[in-house]
Design a protein around this nucleic acid. Structure first.
Length: 367
DNA sequence: TTCCCTTTGAAGCGC
DNA sequence: GCGCTTCAAAGGGAA
C-alpha cells in the first residue's frame, strides 16, 4: 500500500518573493477594449428566414439522423451558424493552446461532431420533448468575457476588503505571481496567488436584456418550472406536475460493480491548513456562469443550476472549452508550485469536517 | 449542524 | 488500463 505523502506547507518560505506588475494586465486590457470597439453590434434577430418557432414541427422537418421527436439530443452549433449568433468577440488569433499538439483554433472535423448532428453549415432544430416547455428566451449563454471591461468594474482599482475573494491574503502581504508559460493569450488573465483568475470577478457579458416571460403568462410563472435541460441555447423547463414515465418493472437493475470502500484516508491533522484542490475547467466555467444562470432561472438551487451549466458546457465549442482547460492548467501549475508535496488524498475524509470552517485561510490562494 | 443534491474533470487507489 | 471514489463550488433543503 502506498503511503500517503506528508503535506509540505512551508513551500512559500522557500519561494523567491515577487512583486506584482500591472504591465501585462494593462496590455491585455488594451487588446480587449480594442476588440470590443471593433466588434460588430449584436444581431437582434438571429433567427433564420423561414424558421417559425411557433409552428409545431413535423417529422419531415427533422434532418437526417436527428433524434426522434421527444428525445433530447445535444447539438453542437455548426461553424458559421455560431458566429452569426454570437455577439461576442471571436477568439484572438494568437491564442496559445495550453498543450503542445492541441490546436483549439483548428476547425472541428466530422469526427468531432456527435452522432446524428447536422452537417456543417446546417442549422439543426432541436425540439423539446412533450411535457417540456421551452421558455421563449434569447438566453444563449455565451462564454464569459474574461476581461471585458464593464461599467462599474475597474480591475485596475485596488480591491476593498469587501471585494476580496474568500480566502484572499490580507492587504499588505506581498503576493507571489507566477508567470504563465509561453505567451499569455489576450483573453486569459494569469492567475496570481493574490487572486486566482477563477476567483476574480467575472466582468458581465455583453448580453441583451433578457425577457423570457411570455405576455400571456402571469408574472413569476417561471418560478413554478424546473429547468431540466439546455437545448440550442434555450433552457428547457419541465411542467410543475410533470413526472418521468415509469421504468418497466421487468427491466433488471444491473449493478456492474459492488461499491468499494476506500481502505485509506488521511488522518485529519488540525494543525495543518486545509489545501483545496485546484479547480478543473468545468469548475471555472461553472463559477463564472452560475450567477447568470441563477438569475435566468430565478432559482438559487445549485443542483438545478448545475444541470443547466453542465449541458451548456457539453454544447460549448471545443475551442471555447480550450480556454478553460488552459485556465485550469495554469491553476494546477500554480497549485503544484506552491504545494509540491500536496496530494489529492490529503483531503480525503476530512473535507466534510472542514468545509464549513469559518477560517478562510484554508484556501491555497491565501498563501 | 451536517449532509445531500447536481454537474464535469482531475487525481489516485484497487483490481 | 479500467473502474471506482473523492473532491473541487454553491446554496437550498432535509435529516
Amino acid at each position: 500500500m502506498k503511503e500517503l505523502k506528508p503535506a509540505n506547507y512551508h513551500v512559500r518560505e522557500e519561494m523567491e518573493p515577487m512583486t506584482y506588475s500591472s504591465l501585462e494586465f494593462d496590455f491585455l486590457l488594451e487588446i480587449l477594449e480594442a476588440d470590443f470597439d471593433n466588434s460588430p453590434p449584436p444581431d437582434e434577430n438571429p433567427v433564420e428566414d423561414g424558421f417559425d418557432p411557433l409552428q409545431p414541427p413535423t417529422e419531415g422537418d427533422m434532418p437526417h439522423g436527428a433524434a426522434p421527436l421527444g428525445l433530447q439530443q445535444p447539438v453542437l452549433p455548426a461553424p458559421g451558424f455560431l458566429d452569426a449568433l454570437n455577439d461576442f468577440p471571436p477568439l484572438p488569433p494568437n491564442y496559445a493552446p495550453a498543450e503542445e499538439g492541441y490546436h483549439p483554433q483548428q476547425p472541428p472535423t466530422e469526427g468531432d461532431m456527435p452522432q446524428g448532428a447536422a452537417p456543417f453549415g446546417m442549422q439543426q432544430q432541436v425540439l423539446p420533448a412533450p411535457g417540456f416547455n421551452v421558455a421563449p428566451t434569447d438566453f444563449p449563454l455565451r462564454p464569459p468575457c474574461y476581461a471585458a471591461a464593464a461599467d462599474g468594474y475597474q480591475p485596475q482599482q485596488p480591491h476593498t476588503h469587501g471585494a476580496m475573494p474568500y480566502g484572499a491574503a490580507p492587504f499588505g502581504l506581498q503576493q507571489q505571481v507566477l508567470p504563465a508559460p509561453g505567451p499569455a493569450p489576450p483573453m486569459y488573465q494569469p492567475p496570481t496567488a493574490l487572486q486566482p483568475s477563477y476567483m476574480q470577478p467575472a466582468a458581465p457579458c455583453r448580453r441583451r436584456q433578457v425577457n423570457n416571460v411570455p405576455a400571456n403568462l402571469p408574472r413569476g410563472w417561471e418560478k413554478n418550472l424546473t429547468a431540466v435541460g439546455y437545448i440550442n441555447g434555450q433552457i428547457v423547463y419541465g411542467l410543475p406536475n410533470y413526472t418521468a414515465p415509469p421504468v418497466a418493472s421487468d427491466v433488471p437493475v444491473v449493478k456492474a460493480h459492488a461499491p468499494r470502500k476506500r481502505k485509506f484516508y488521511a488522518e485529519p491533522d488540525e494543525s495543518k491548513p486545509y489545501v483545496k484542490k485546484p479547480p478543473n475547467a468545468f469548475m471555472i466555467y461553472r463559477t463564472e456562469q452560475r450567477p447568470t444562470v441563477a438569475a435566468e432561472l430565478q432559482n438559487r438551487d445549485c443542483a438545478a443550476i448545475n444541470k443547466v451549466i453542465g449541458q451548456m458546457w457539453r454544447s460549448l465549442p471545443k475551442e471555447e472549452q480550450a480556454i478553460y482547460y488552459g485556465h485550469a492548467d495554469r491553476e494546477r501549475q500554480l497549485h503544484t508550485q506552491m504545494f509540491p508535496e500536496w496530494s489529492a488524498c490529503d483531503n480525503y475524509g476530512i473535507k466534510r469536517k472542514r468545509i464549513r470552517r469559518k477560517d478562510p485561510m484554508t484556501d491555497y490562494s491565501a498563501i
